[in-house]
Simulated assay, not measured.
Amino acid sequence: MFIRILGSAAGGGFPQWNCNCPMCTGVRTGSINARVRTQSSIAVSHDRCDWVLFNASPDILTQIQQCGVLQPARQLRDTGIQSIVLMDAQIDHTTGLLMLREHRQALSIWCTAAVREDLSEGNPLFRVLDHYSGIDWHELTTDGNVCQIPGAASVTFTALSLTSNAPPYSPHRDKPVDGDTIGMMMSDTVSGRSVFYAPGLGEMETHVWEAMQSADVVLIDGTMWTDDEMIQRGASNKTARSMGHLPQSGSGGMLEWLDKLPESTRKILIHINNTNPILDEDSEERSILDDHGVEVAHDGLELEI
């Protein structure tokens, strides 16, 4: 199984277009050691030819251009993207679907019924796409069902319900229902190895923790360093947890949980907010992650599992 990190930042990317926080200013001016990042998305394949796209960010066209294997050029109109999995209905994970409207067949979309509802009613992207390529919807359930998704023939996929938060336009906002946000266990039937992927995780539940412990690689929510990061930066009055993200530091934070995983587990943070000091590779916070054996995903990183 191959996993390509197309985008590693949270919504807005890094730097965020209208943000002048120390991190965004620093990467623009070159005064900090940091990489520019597009909004969170990955692609999964068994042969580096056909791919399953996870989330379609607003940066999808740039990401496709920067990842040559997504365009195999086998015919006049072609793409390596065979299926698209949506982990939630957030704008930064779905807006890119509009950029794929020229597809010659209906877009093969895999998501939960809750996400389909949000993208048909609250933010009717699916109804808009019906005027272009159309949607071929496949329901993902969180009942432990193992499925295969076209684009990664040797990989099995199991969706897990996560406690996070639905988008602001969703009728489920602050009233979560099953399927608003999912994690995904991906297992390679050839190598026998597995990955747990969850770019948005607000609470460590028993079934999630069990999945993380069984995975060889954990690709997990790294949105914010502290719970009050946005408040301290003056960027928002919301905490990380209220937005559905477990912060890395502090009691019960992501780093505390990652420390409990087996030493053999590869631990990688993704979906990094532009305010998060771990984006500065010379920061104290980044040094702490290094000491704990935790990596920070960057655009273009490829994993072979």
Rank of each mutant, 00 (worst) to 15 (best):
N276F: 07
D280F: 12
T62M: 00
L279T: 09
I91N: 03
A240M: 07
D228Q: 08
G244T: 03
D228H: 04
G80A: 02
S214I: 07
G300N: 12
L125N: 05
E229R: 05
S164W: 03
T94L: 01
D178P: 01
Q71W: 14
R233L: 11
G293R: 06
N237A: 02
H172P: 00
L255Q: 12
D174P: 00
Y197S: 05
P171T: 04
T226V: 01
A114P: 11
S40G: 11
G202P: 14
Q66S: 12
D130P: 07
S283H: 04
S161E: 07
D228A: 12
S57P: 13
V115A: 12
F2R: 11
Y197N: 07
P150R: 00
D280Y: 13
G179C: 03
M204E: 06
G252K: 03
E205D: 09
V155P: 00
T142F: 00
P150Y: 01
A297H: 14
T112S: 14
G293M: 02
M243R: 14
I278L: 06
C67Q: 11
V155T: 06
D221Y: 01
I3S: 01
I220K: 13
A114L: 11
H46S: 14
S194T: 10
A153N: 07
Q213R: 12
S287A: 15
H271P: 00
V294K: 03
V85K: 02
N276R: 05
Q248L: 14
E256P: 15
Q248I: 13
S31I: 08
S214D: 14
D178F: 01
N55W: 09
I182D: 03
P171F: 06
S8Y: 01
T239E: 09
P168Q: 13
T25Y: 04
D178V: 12
D143C: 03
G13N: 09
R116D: 14
L246T: 15
Q63M: 07
R193P: 00
P58I: 01
I60K: 08
Y197M: 13
R266L: 07
R193H: 10
E210T: 12
E102L: 13
